[in-house]
Simulated scan of single mutants.
Amino acid sequence: MNRTPFAVLALVRFTVLLRPHSEQLVIRYSERAECDMPVIMPADSAGLVSDW
């Protein structure tokens, strides 16, 4: 059985899911901190962190 189509489909899905987050993935944390760019943590944007 050839698994190539399944691997390609998984790669396409992975790419589509991560495309909106490419800015966070391409620029390093230290580079964002040096340039005073906002550092958005995934837990913050997902609403998983709450203030006590």
Rank of each mutant, 00 (worst) to 15 (best):
A43S: 15
R32A: 01
A7T: 12
L18H: 00
A46I: 03
C35N: 13
A33L: 07
V8I: 15
T15N: 03
N2F: 04
H21Q: 02
R19V: 07
L25F: 10
H21E: 00
P5I: 02
R3Y: 01
D51G: 09
S50F: 03
A7Q: 09
D44K: 13
R3I: 12
I27M: 04
M41H: 15
P5G: 04
V8T: 14
L11H: 07
V12M: 07
P20D: 04
S45G: 14
L9H: 07
A43G: 08
F14Y: 07
N2W: 05
R32L: 00
L48M: 14
L17T: 14
P5S: 13
V26G: 04
G47I: 08
L18C: 04
V8K: 10
R13Q: 01
T15V: 13
R28P: 03
M41R: 15
S45V: 01
A33F: 05
M41K: 12
P42Y: 08
Y29E: 07
L18I: 07
L48F: 14
Y29Q: 00
D51K: 12
A7K: 13
R13H: 00
L25E: 12
R3A: 10
T4A: 06
S22P: 02
H21R: 06
H21S: 02
A10R: 02
A7I: 08
R19E: 10
L48W: 15
E23S: 12
D36H: 15
